[in-house]
Design a protein around this nucleic acid. Structure first.
Lengths: 198, 198
DNA sequence: CTTGTTTTATGATTTAAGTCATAAAACGCA
DNA sequence: TGCGTTTTATGACTTAAATCATAAAACAAG
């Protein structure tokens, strides 16, 4: 999103997070702007009996956790490394300075937030009013442009586990497994040795 | 958000929408920036069997429908007047020009989008992993700062119908009615001649 | 290789919320 | 001030998805 050069010019430092390491926690106040150099980060919540909900998954060059940073409010979810990741971290005050001095960046931030709001609108409607199969298919279709699914001879490889799909759509693993099977039977997607293609 | 003066300087015109009139429809491409002068607008979706989901409700001085405007993507939901409303409408190209020539406005847009993303994150987690009572209470609590609930001697008056609460939380009216009764019994809120107070 | 963990899979059972039916109270407007 | 509509309300019942149990396949680590 923002070039590494520019971030470093304002004092950003690169930090390493190993798999399952926490970048920030729900309920804490934001201190930094975060932009992924490499790896994969998920934002998630747990309810009282330990059930996970994944707000989103982010990949290289993407930023995350800005809304509370701008509003100076507590994080509504935690950020956790899904795999080993490198992240550029820039102190809030320096990030704000960067924004002020580089108005063109604002437009990029706006487009990024707009994209995420769009995704959330689509998924909110899905989760509230559609059955499992519809929800799963919508996540996958939206994900083709939103997440980094790679295309090969069989179509787009949906590189999520059934559990992740469940945590992104508010469904249980078993329900996702059954929905995916049903969708395969209907010809909406393919399962090639347990991997899902669309 | 943006002063009426500035919007008008760039050619915005004030339009009147009567109750239930549509401002824009799901699936259409955006053409204008919209900012409410007076009244109340809801953004909603309908699923295949006519069930409604309300994405959000907006009041005077708030804007809505920007994400697709910035991304040049189809609206993921429709916008409908809940009551008679006046809206300032500014053509996309002129709005973009306004933004370019007034960098300070960008920050306001960012804060606004951040606020909405925050609301969506909170509600997504609620809808996916919490029971009806929790969902209703969270909507109400978040709504106290987000929607324009007025405080009086009995507390904040939640001026939503049970149906609207259902459409905002993905629950059916009957479930909302039962959840609200249960919450009253637990002392979490008050019902004074059918009106809900918190 | 072996072993422990994660992921996918399937069947049986339970349950919370949706659905259906019905009605009274409140509201709106002609 | 009367009448149609909307909103709130409650009880009975149905059902879709969650839960529970179990296991095989795949993967990861030592």
């Amino acid at each position: 999103m923002i070039t590494a050069d520019l971030l470093e010019k304002y004092g950003a430092s690169k930090k390493f997070y190993e798999k399952t390491a926490t970048v920030f926690e729900e309920g804490k106040l934001p201190t930094h702007y975060y932009q992924i150099v490499s790896g994969e980060i998920k934002m998630n919540n747990y309810n009282d009996d330990g059930r996970e909900f994944i707000q989103g998954i982010f990949y290289k060059e993407q930023s995350f956790g800005e809304p509370p940073l701008f509003l100076n409010q507590k994080y509504p979810a935690s950020a956790v490394a899904v795999e080993e990741s490198q992240i550029l971290c820039l102190l809030r005050s320096n990030f704000m300075k960067l924004l002020e001095e580089n108005p063109a960046i604002s437009i990029k931030i706006i487009e990024n937030l707009a994209q995420r709001l769009y995704y959330k609108s689509v998924m909110a409607a899905e989760i509230s009013t559609h059955e499992p199969e519809h929800r799963v298919l919508k996540l996958i279709d939206h994900g083709i442009s939103y997440f980094n699914f790679k295309k090969d001879a069989n179509g787009f490889l949906i590189n999520f586990t059934r559990q992740q799909i469940g945590d992104l759509t508010g469904l249980r693993v078993e329900t996702v497994i059954r929905a995916i099977k049903a969708l395969e039977k209907k010809g909406e997607l393919k399962i090639i040795n347990r991997k899902v293609y669309r």
